[in-house]
Amino acid sequence: MTDEDEQKLVGIVLVSHSAAVADSVAELAKQLSGGGAAPVRAAGGTPDGGFGTSPELIAEAAQAVDRGAGVAVLADLGSAVLAVKALLAEGDELPEGTRLVDAPLVEGAVAAVVTASTGADVDAVLQAASEAYDYRKV
């Protein structure tokens, strides 16, 4: 893969109320994707280290993983989802091509990172992450 291809990978942002959860899921997804090349950033908790969600951290993370191919954002629940939706509604807070993924956080993150690392486009990454809902465990 050339440098130019690498720059066009879809970025992944993982949002949780907990910094530890977001960081760990990011680490887990990278590990399970065989150290995939897709840029991944965690945006968990509040800037002062508490529990909650921070649109500031989310926007920062999205900028950091943006390679021009779009950014897929996965969130845990409640205000994390609302925060991403509100940022998207702003229009200018997140990089162009940023999308909120309708997927479970852990399973979706693994699917998203694996798929994004293959160089797939943002639609394919969203699709793969959403399909994690269909993976029944019982």
Partner: peptide, 20 residues
């Protein structure tokens, strides 16, 4: 805009959206 970025709970995006 301040409420969206500073509140840290669901009320931030909601009140922020209301005022914006």
């Amino acid at each position: 805009r301040q409420l969206i970025s500073k509140v840290g709970g669901a009320s931030g995006p909601l009140y922020g959206t209301l005022l914006r």
